[in-house]
Design a protein around this nucleic acid. Structure first.
Lengths: 329, 329
DNA sequence: CTGAAAGCGCTTACAG
DNA sequence: CTGAAAGCGCTTACAG
């Protein structure tokens, strides 16, 4: 049950006939004579010694841990981001501590603080979310990634979601659609707000049926089935993210509605699955990996210079036309 | 840069006019008089105090951290497992430290040791993998989950993969297929070996074309396109996991091969995507979530009793018939 | 270059 | 019930 290191630096020191601080120096690149270093290294290797992070964190200036708050790891979107962040963080010797929706939000913040994270990246904050504020209130740097909060005094990075909405609307309008519907995301999420705003900007003179999908597959599937089986079925549907668009595509099959023959569907994100021949989703691509990288880099920069004014990066998006859109019948 | 707790238990103690050890006692449920407890609790709440895990781990009997080694988080398979494990581990107050393929395997083991994990769950070990052995060699309990290693002296849990192969073969044979192909996984992975063995058991008298997909989408996609565009195209294809089956389904579209009209496809796993109307993959379901739960439980039991003989759980599978299989033309 | 010492923030016996 | 003290395994000045 007790989980104590099998060997400690003190034991290494004893066996190498040096002071414990000398072991520490060869471990951390302090000045040590070649002979001594040699001797210590030999013992280090003999035991395959690994210094305790707990002790290091406790005494050192930094813990080397960065928190990453993910909403739902099973959304194909997030693993891609986590991987990208992990790459740049790991390169700089930082470890990452994942907090998912398995723990309650409040508990998540407590965990991050107990863990002594040097900073945290939020990937799915909503405007009303008190957590990022609470963390930075405790002096821990926060980066808002993918979803942002207007006026939040921190580094933020996101796609040009307004433009994404415009691109989707423009594409559908150009094809000749006039009976439009929009499957909306989580109320209050910046991505939902912005994508919706962009879409409405170009469709202001048209009635657009709005249905809430909450960025969730099951909710969207049910909502779209209801929409398609009801009266006044739209000829085109803009989904505020790809997961909802996939749900829509499948719901259409279930309802016997041909896509794109009887219904055009546009998504937003361009996750890997959307490129599959069986899905062939027309969507607006956002630079997923790049967004995650920038988030990690913003945090790194912040850790290097706490006084730097916050930056807000907005990355470009592009329409990817595939097989789910066509002119109305 | 320095990441020190904003408040320490010593400061709390001072403000509450008690000894630091008393603060520790109210935190950990030691015996404290109601009045004293009240007073300390007030200060604790005032600062929203969170004790340092580093200090706790260093002094305490346990770190409360469990390692989970994941091959590729972007395979839809693993997030589901991680989530399930996290649920049961979190319930018992354990945190989980994720190691993905972003770090080199050797480095992964070193990280787990530095982190002082009380145990580790491997989700994608292969027979030749030295890592599980190395970890348990350092006295750290290991559980093999999903993929197992024959004769490895540790707790293991997996699906009945041999039966899975049999079910797939039986289904295809029953439909009347005689020109079969199999898309194989990572050589040496128990899942690949067992599913392959089960499939061959029922098809021993038939020539079965084997193509290596390595459990990887891109590799499988390329392999299946080559297979379908070549001579002697099979009428049925068993894919040793769903990701490869999805690749096959999409490759078939790319090659203009109708499924199930000209080609039947069977997968293995039954990940969520396989149930989508657009995919409708006939597959062998393995109890993903249950496997992950059992893995976590096995580790918990092991931590409670290090001397218990290792258990090896094999969970049942079932055929899920959907739209990608039919009699040969 | 090297050692002795202090101290990080806690938990855990040990007295009282 | 409560406090004083030891100690977890390290890093980091500080002497020599």
């Amino acid at each position: 049950m007790a989980r104590r290191p099998s060997v400690t630096s003190t034991q290494i020191a004893r066996e190498a006939r040096v002071a414990q601080s000398t072991v520490s120096r060869v471990l951390n690149g302090g000045s040590v004579s070649p002979q001594t270093r040699e001797r210590v290294l030999a013992v280090l290797e003999k035991y395959d010694f690994q210094p305790s992070q707990a002790a290091r964190s406790l005494v050192g200036a930094r813990t080397g841990v960065v928190g990453v708050v993910i909403r739902d790891l099973t959304n194909p979107f997030y693993p891609v981001m986590v991987k990208a962040m992990e790459r740049v963080l790991h390169e700089r010797g930082l470890r990452l501590f994942l907090v998912t929706d398995v723990v309650a939000p409040e508990e998540g913040v407590a965990m991050l603080r107990r863990e002594g994270v040097e900073g945290a990246i939020f990937t799915a904050a909503v405007a009303t979310d008190p957590l990022p504020g609470r963390l930075s209130g405790h002096g821990i740097p926060v980066v808002l990634c993918h979803r942002t909060i207007d006026g939040f005094p921190a580094d933020q990075v996101e796609a040009d979601n307004v433009e994404a909405g415009r691109l989707a609307a423009g594409h559908l309008l150009e094809l000749g659609h006039r009976r439009l519907a929009m499957l909306t995301g989580v109320p209050g999420a910046s991505t939902a707000v912005q994508r919706g705003a962009g879409f409405r900007e170009l469709t202001a003179d048209l009635p657009v049926v709005e249905v809430e999908g909450g960025f969730d597959y099951d909710q969207s599937y049910a909502a779209v089935r209801a929409l398609l089986s009801g009266p006044d079925r739209p000829t085109a549907l803009f989904c505020q993210n790809d997961v909802m668009a996939h749900a829509a595509l499948n719901a259409a099959v279930a309802e016997g509605v041909d896509v794109p023959g009887a219904l055009s569907v546009v998504g937003c994100d361009d996750v890997p699955v959307s490129g599959w021949e069986r899905m062939a989703l027309t969507t607006v691509r956002q630079p997923l990996v790049r967004i995650a990288q920038v988030a990690a880099e913003l945090l790194l920069d912040r850790l290097a210079d706490a006084g730097r004014p916050p930056r807000h990066e907005v990355l470009p998006v592009e329409l990817v036309t595939r097989g789910t859109t066509a002119p109305p019948a």
